[in-house]
Design a protein around this nucleic acid. Structure first.
Lengths: 327, 327
DNA sequence: ATGAAAGCGCTAACAG
DNA sequence: CTGTTAGCGCTTTCAT
């Protein structure tokens, strides 16, 4: 590996001049520039990014922390984030926190040491106090951290009303909700949307809301219980697609026909919806767009461009497939 | 952020001494060590890892390059790799190459600049020539790169014979194979296993092997065609689980009952197998173990411990579910 | 056992 | 327009 000194020597100039042409900064005569470029080329010189980082306290890396890389929603999201990150001239470091605040903090610590330029974080555990000492910008994705932190998410409340209304409109008479974990804001919002849509209807009972914890197997068990206890349930809105799959599994084991006897609708719009039988009707998030927007905002912040807004809320869309009756 | 100088000043010693206690290296008097540790503590000092990297040309990071993070096999693998990486005191940088040799090379280039200590690579495009200049160790995972590069994979050939034999044993009379992309070694091996098992049987025809490219939708289309052309096919071995799902979809659209009329078996053993209806019989790889072993080897290489073997081949296991007839 | 000083490869004043 | 030089924060000889 050749260094800036080697280039300077070959080009017959000083390291400062080489640095200037490298960074397109300051005056440099056209002829010397040519000489330097030739030297760079002939030596196949690449500036050492660690040395650069040490001086600049920047790294051209951004960190993405997600709670569970094995939930297909996050690879799809990460894919979008990676794309835009690369196109913006940065490198993505993808970290999996297991929703564990210790791991989250360790990753933040390590990456911070490495001078990452910013973070995109999906978290329900990290609070304002945990990030207040960070000198680099942060964008909260999917779930807000606090009001000060720029946030990109979708309209979970509207989406869940849409889902619930759709079940009503297609003839469901008793609709249950399998919600995600408490204190995960999107799960709470989706639950609130469901409640606001149905809680004044005469068939409504609080027992129709159960917690599936964003987990297939947990949901399968709890849905079996629910459907056994209330055999007249004919519609279930699951707080995410993973849990909707759990509901399908439960119905299957109980010999309940979908959608004839039971309609199911999920939330997220991951590709998994198309692999189940029946394929899953869902409220689809614009996954690529939210990932992409989060990076754009972060890069704007890193490069000191002012933000137009602090919060971006995307809208969701109902995608009708086979797990619900046609409208 | 305090520096080693601040610590030295507070402790009343030189930076060299601080460095010595930091690294547990060289002689340092017990009392001075205490003083230094106290200073470190009181300043909440953390050594700057970029400065350290610059000097040592190491970074305590390892890079993992996978071809497609949205194929659920890779998140599961990445999860294992991340786990062991962290436990070994390293940080994982997860990169998605889209099977694109340009992106692979860019990632290698960038990470190399950042002094990553080693790479774990899953690739079918990268060849020996592309990595020969790398000074850091590399481990090939899932797919070999060349004979010199330590490789961790599974016995694809045996696994596919096992799958094919199982279809025969459960009464299938005409078995087709949906293979993965050409020149992806595991796809080639799985195809070879199938062929060696059936090509001498009288019903065998070369047209029974079709290419699904490791892709659900591609497979669905091609399987519909195949099953229409050869309605007497009663067993399909798919080269991975994703393609097996494509086959399920195709059968569904054609009104073919699984497993009564058609048995399907996949390969990989990803969790997706349990979300389909019927659930998918598959040849399961020990995903966690292969990821884990790859890291162990890489870390041994990085830390100059000799390798016991250059190649680790794990065995696979048949998991019977609902997409095949019981034995 | 400890300290002074050189240097990892780069950038940015500052001087000329 | 170009060169000299002082760091960025750390590790490691080499003296003492």
């Amino acid at each position: 590996m050749s260094t800036i000194r080697d280039v300077a020597k070959v080009a017959g100039v000083s390291v400062a001049t080489v640095s200037r042409v490298l960074n397109n900064k300051g005056y440099v005569n056209e002829d010397t520039r040519k000489k330097v470029e030739a030297a760079i080329h002939s030596l196949n010189y690449k500036p050492n990014s660690v040395a650069r980082s040490l001086f600049k306290k920047k790294s051209k890396m951004i960190g993405l922390i997600v709670p569970d890389i094995t939930n297909p929603f996050f690879p799809q999201l990460a894919r979008a984030v990676e794309d835009v990150t690369n196109h913006s001239g940065y490198t993505l470091v993808l970290c999996n926190s297991d929703e564990d605040i210790i791991k989250e903090q360790e990753y933040i610590e390590v990456l911070n040491q490495k001078y990452v330029d910013g973070f995109i974080i999906v978290t329900s555990t990290l609070k304002a106090e945990h990030i207040k000492d960070l000198k680099v910008p942060i964008v909260a994705l999917d779930r807000p951290i606090n009001l000060d932190t720029p946030t990109v998410s979708v309209n979970n409340y509207e989406g869940s009303r849409l889902a619930t209304k759709f079940l009503c409109d297609t003839g469901c008479q008793k609709i249950a909700h399998v919600r995600g974990p408490y204190n995960v804001l999107n799960a709470d919002e989706r639950c609130r949307g469901y409640l606001d849509e149905v809680q004044d209807l005469d068939w409504f009972r609080p027992e129709l809301v159960v917690n599936g914890n964003f987990n297939i197997n947990k949901t399968k068990e709890i849905a079996k219980e629910l459907l056994t206890l209330h055999p007249d349930i004919d519609g279930i809105f699951a707080g995410n697609d993973l849990m909707a799959v759990g509901v399908i599994k439960a119905a299957e084991e109980l010999g309940i026909k979908i959608p004839e006897q039971l309609s199911i609708i999920g939330f997220d719009g991951i590709t998994l919806c198309e692999t189940t039988s029946p394929e899953l009707t869902t409220i689809a998030q614009p996954i690529y767009n939210i990932g992409s927007k989060a990076v754009q905002i972060l890069v704007d912040l890193i490069e000191n461009r002012p933000l137009e807004q602090n919060n971006y809320t995307f809208s969701v869309e109902l995608i009708e497939r086979q797990s619900t009756k046609p409208r």
